[in-house]
Nucleic acid binder design. Structure first.
Lengths: 179, 179
DNA sequence: GTCTATAGGGTGATAGAC
DNA sequence: GTCTATCACCCTATAGAC
């Protein structure tokens, strides 16, 4: 792929990914994308039709990355509880929030089928994966919601504490149902 | 307060509240606020110094309203589990998301102490209230996170289903630890 | 209190030279 | 492929008349 980001196209996608994460879709301008990528205006419009197309490429790439990271925990060794613990406690930049979950709050994202679909697919994939491990779809969805909600509480508090508490809580509850 | 919204000031705060909910802080312009309120430019700048001050007034009002609604469930009759159930299952416009939680994703909100503080206070209040009922701060935070995360999953799926599943899951887990 | 006029800068995109 | 020029419009706010 664009592992070295020597190419213009790859750099554009990468800077869009960063900006979408930091400022959301509405808060990200083509100009900011170009500047961060060190690429001119004409160059950007040569590779992409505009901001929407760029955002789709960025979100799809972030979604793929997130799935890969989750899989490396959930498919790892150990019991179901141990795998889920590894997933929930994996290193995260909590105060930055979830690059996928954050898009969900953007009005122009949920309105666009192409932009919303990768988000829906990612969460469906995670929920299915977690359902296999906990054996119950409702509880699997609760685990996922706890994670996403943990980010929200952490950003409101400007502290990782509520995130950690929420994870501790769900793991304590899970320990009672998973043998 | 502004129950009838006959006054200009009250209409401005109300339209700001709606727009912040629908489009977030970055996505809301003074012009849009004026138009929705049916108020002219000069009028808005007479009552408020600008968008930030307007947003603070709107967020503080939304936070107060949310606390009141939550209290009416959490302070109601019944066991701890029944009260929490009433709170989590209370009528909501799930796909619109949480008016407080959604602000959390806005870069210009978490950066502003005056805007972030009401969010932090609201969640602290809710967490404390829930802690009294479930007797454990971690698990109380998990309940709150499940709710906030449920909104995120619902918006991604453009469906209430994951929200309902997450709530069902946490209630099933709570039933095992409460009395 | 409310109105219109004006301003300086940004947005998202197109055109055409190189 | 990349660059600069240009565009119509929006953003946030100030000024000053009424």
């Amino acid at each position: 792929m664009y592992t070295r980001l020597v190419d213009t196209r790859g750099r554009l996608v990468e800077s869009t990914r960063e900006l979408l994460w930091e400022r959301g879709y509405v808060g990200t301008s083509p100009k900011a994308i170009q500047q961060r990528a060190g690429v001119g205006q004409g160059s950007m419009y040569h590779h992409f039709s505009g901001k929407p197309e760029l955002a789709v490429a960025a979100v799809e790439r972030s979604a793929a990355e997130l799935r890969a990271a989750a899989a490396s925990c959930l498919d790892g060794p150990g019991s179901a509880l141990e795998r889920i613990t590894a997933y929930l406690r994996r290193e995260r930049d909590v105060l930055k929030g979830c690059p996928i979950g954050r898009m969900t709050q953007d009005p122009d994202v949920v309105t666009s089928p192409e932009l919303r679909q990768p988000l829906a697919d990612t969460f469906t994939w995670l929920r299915d994966r977690l359902t296999e491990l906990v054996g119950d779809e409702d509880i699997a969805t609760t685990v996922l919601a706890t994670l996403q909600g943990g980010y929200v509480l952490a950003r409101a508090a400007e502290s990782v504490e509520p995130f950690d508490q929420a994870i501790n809580g769900i793991l304590a509850l899970l320990a009672r149902v998973l043998d």
